[in-house]
Design a protein around this nucleic acid. Structure first.
Length: 276
DNA sequence: GTTAATACCTGTTCGC
DNA sequence: TGCGAACAGGTATTAA
């Protein structure tokens, strides 16, 4: 569930307790998440200072003063919990615990274990297997109209599937793709390569707007989460399409209703009335 | 080369 | 009440 905006919100929430701070000790409570943890992970984290907390797509990157970078992926159920480092209780699915400088504790909790952590040399981390083939950041400079037109040209797959492809654009997930296509008035079933160039171009500012609004909304939720014992993970925004099966379409002048279909095993929510 | 399907994982919900 | 099936979905892998 955590897509780009949620990951960005988690990153921002972690900055006060992690960036510039030393990891006093790391507890690694199991050998793996989705994949095995790197060798001696606890040792390679312990005593290191987090120089910078960055984000690439849905990955959080923690640059350490040892020259290594910790990659963190939240999968779909991953959460970060911030608390004071004085209550030793461990909840179910608390897989990694960071005991931080200044008496703070950061817990990585992930029920479904689709998350991941790995360590790689900072100076070549962009070549890491998980990052190497990612497309451009949708909020960055290299993502623009001509890029997207070029990448969707000739594509025979549904536009929804194409926008979910992290090699084409990095950071969108099932929820925000539905929101983007609703705002764009494009049916998720349309083949990507059959969309007119103006239609494809129109997607770019919509993608930026949807993500920026969600980040803003996540940011405003941060202080609430900090009060609620510092849980950072996924939070419910109000969506216009996702999860609204059977409810009226909110597009201006549209009297249709949101329907749910399944595309390549994933739920798609859209309005057949105004998305063509 | 391109696209589709499947596996991974567990908590929750739904139908019988 | 209890049980099993379906579902949630990001991504690597396998299949077509």
């Amino acid at each position: 569930m955590p897509e780009l905006p949620e990951v960005e919100t988690v990153r921002r929430g972690l900055i006060p307790v992690m960036q510039g701070k030393q990891i006093i000790r790391a507890d690694v409570n199991r050998p793996d998440l989705r994949w095995p943890f790197p060798a001696r992970m606890a040792d390679r984290l312990t005593g290191k200072t987090v120089e910078q907390l960055r984000r690439r797509s849905k990955y959080i990157l923690a640059d350490l003063d040892s020259g290594e970078t910790l990659l963190i992926h939240l999968g779909m159920s991953g959460r970060m919990l911030i608390s004071k480092d004085d209550h030793p209780d461990i909840q179910k699915h608390d897989h990694v615990v960071f005991h931080m400088q200044d008496d703070a504790r950061v817990v990585f909790n992930d029920t479904r274990r689709f998350g991941a952590m790995d360590l790689a040399a900072t100076d070549s981390v962009e070549n890491h297997k998980l990052l190497a083939s990612l497309g451009p950041e949708p909020l960055g400079n290299t993502f623009d109209e001509s890029y997207l037109v070029g990448r969707l040209k000739g594509k025979n797959m549904p536009v929804k599937t194409a926008l979910l492809d992290q090699r084409i654009i990095a950071g969108l997930g099932n929820i925000y793709v539905c929101e983007v296509l609703l705002r764009a008035g494009i049916s998720p079933t349309r083949k990507a390569g059959e969309l007119s160039a103006p239609k494809v171009r129109s997607l770019v500012p919509i993608i930026r707007d949807v993500l920026a609004e969600a980040i803003e909304s996540g940011g405003s939720s941060l202080k609430d989460y900090r009060q609620a014992d510092g849980e950072l993970g996924y939070f419910q925004h109000s969506f216009r399409a996702y999860g609204r099966e059977g409810e009226p379409c909110v597009t201006k002048g549209c009297c249709g209703e949101i329907t749910r279909i399944v595309q390549s095993g994933r739920s798609t929510f859209y309005c057949a009335q105004c998305q063509r």
